[in-house]
């Protein structure tokens, strides 16, 4: 990557902004457009940009294929855990009203956590699929 100073420097400016924007979309999804799915895609695209510029080996030191696989399962598990938590607190599966004293607050907590689960799963699945493609050898 020594040959392309312009690409390298631009990406150093852009990647943090992309990742920050992904987090904004994730946690601002209640108020503006967006949510876990879009945030996960944007987060993964920021890391994919890093892979395209610095190669896969350097990126895998930061976040490996194994980590993305574990994170993909973790996100789905968070989603299910929110559902089961509702059941344990006396509601139905994925009923958020019982998660807090106030039903509306409970809805907020539920949506926050399931969107977090969706975001983690989507980001790590896209990254893992990209890794699988990039590492494939004929």
């Amino acid at each position: 990557m020594k040959k392309n100073p312009i690409l390298r420097e631009t990406s150093h400016v852009l990647i943090p902004v992309i990742l920050l924007f992904a987090l904004y979309v994730q946690f601002h999804g209640d108020y503006g457009p967006g949510g876990g799915f879009q945030a996960g895609v944007i987060f993964a695209s920021g890391i994919i940009l890093y892979v395209l510029l610095h190669g896969i080996k350097k990126t895998e030191k930061i976040i490996s294929l194994q980590t993305t696989k574990l994170l993909a399962a973790l996100g789905l598990l968070i989603y299910c855990a929110v559902g089961v938590a509702g059941m344990l607190l006396g509601g139905l599966f994925l009923e958020y009203n019982v998660l807090a004293a106030d039903p509306v607050a409970g809805q907020h907590w539920g949506i926050l956590f399931i969107e977090l689960g969706v975001g983690i799963t989507v980001a790590s699945v896209i990254l893992a699929v990209f890794y699988a493609f990039a590492k494939f050898e004929k």
Binding site: G29, D30, Y31, G32, P33, G35, P103, V104, A105, Q107, H108, I111, E115
Partner: peptide, 9 residues
């Protein structure tokens, strides 16, 4: 019921 301004969410 939900208290979230974005109805899509």
């Amino acid at each position: 019921e939900v208290g979230v301004p974005n109805i899509v969410t």
